[in-house]
């Protein structure tokens, strides 16, 4: 089978935070396109992998970026010994073979790229391959999911209104302290006390969101710090290299964050 590599064999660990699993299943059942909204590192990718596993579906992930063109998604002609040959892009593959297509960080893509998903996300469910002169009708199993980080940076690169309004949205945030500690403990393999402490520390940096920091430390970063602890690194060094130095170059902020970490222990 063409997409056999795209199935997820083992259950990815996902700790539900609310009713997101039920909601996603319903949206999938109706094939409604879904937007996963939330800051970086809060579990969107993990969630969609878990859902693909749960629904037993292949998943095609595309990390969107500024220089991505419509051809990167849809496909393009390549040269071979006999001349040109069409090569399906990842979106086209998912459409033909009925996979979940996950467009990660969709706002990074330019708007003229994003519009190729429009005919796929209304009742038509078609993907026109203009250059090839083909109209691909979506396989019944095809489901489109995008992720979207509504940070202020994205004011510059927002989705078109006509793109936004094609999606249902599920909102992700950093989970409540106890839940997040559970996740950090599981993922980093550390004890509950250490995980809870890392979450308290994480909250300190999230308090600075919009006051110097564009984003506070994500669950992902807390897991990194936990993994360093697990490896025998001291808390101070672990926090410094996993939570503080990566998010700011401002010495005052760094100093304040270090001092705030000290206040948690």
């Amino acid at each position: 089978m063409i997409l056999s590599d795209h199935y997820i064999a083992d259950e990815p660990y996902y700790r539900p935070v609310g009713d997101e699993i039920t909601l996603f299943e319903a949206a999938y059942a109706m094939r409604l396109p879904v937007m996963l909204k939330g800051p970086t590192g809060c579990g969107k990718t993990r969630f969609i992998e878990h859902m693909a596993w749960k629904l037993n579906k292949p998943i095609v992930t595309v990390a969107c970026h500024e220089d991505m063109t419509a051809s990167d998604l849809v496909g393009r002609f390549l040269l071979d010994a006999n001349g040109t040959i069409w090569h399906d892009g990842p979106l086209c593959l998912a459409v033909r073979h009925g996979a979940i297509c996950y467009l990660d960080e969709i706002v990074e893509a330019r708007q003229d790229t994003t519009v190729v998903i429009h005919p796929l996300t209304d009742e038509r469910r078609i993907l026109p391959l203009e250059k090839k002169g083909e109209l691909v009708r979506a396989h019944a199993g095809f489901h489109l999911v995008i992720s979207y980080n509504p940070g202020y940076q994205s004011i510059l690169k927002d989705l078109k209104e006509s793109t936004k309004q094609r999606f249902c949205a599920i909102e992700f945030g950093y989970p409540e302290a106890e839940v997040e500690a559970e996740i950090v403990a599981h993922e980093a393999g550390i004890g509950p006390d250490a995980a809870a402490l890392l979450v308290t520390i994480g909250e300190r940096s999230r308090n600075l969101r919009g006051h110097g920091l564009a984003e506070g430390a994500s669950t992902r970063m807390l897991i990194h710090a936990g993994q360093l602890l697990k490896h025998g690194i001291q808390l101070e060094a672990a926090c410094r290299i996993a939570l503080i130095l990566p998010i700011t170059d401002d010495t005052d902020l760094r100093g304040a964050l270090c001092a705030a970490v000290a206040a948690c222990v």
């Binding site: 006390d193 250490a194 760094r254 270090c258 000290a262």
Partner: peptide, 15 residues
């Protein structure tokens, strides 16, 4: 919290 490493605030001097 001894099990998870001591906070030695050496970084105070640095920042």
């Amino acid at each position: 919290h001894g099990g998870i490493g001591r906070w030695e605030v050496s970084s105070f001097a640095r920042f």
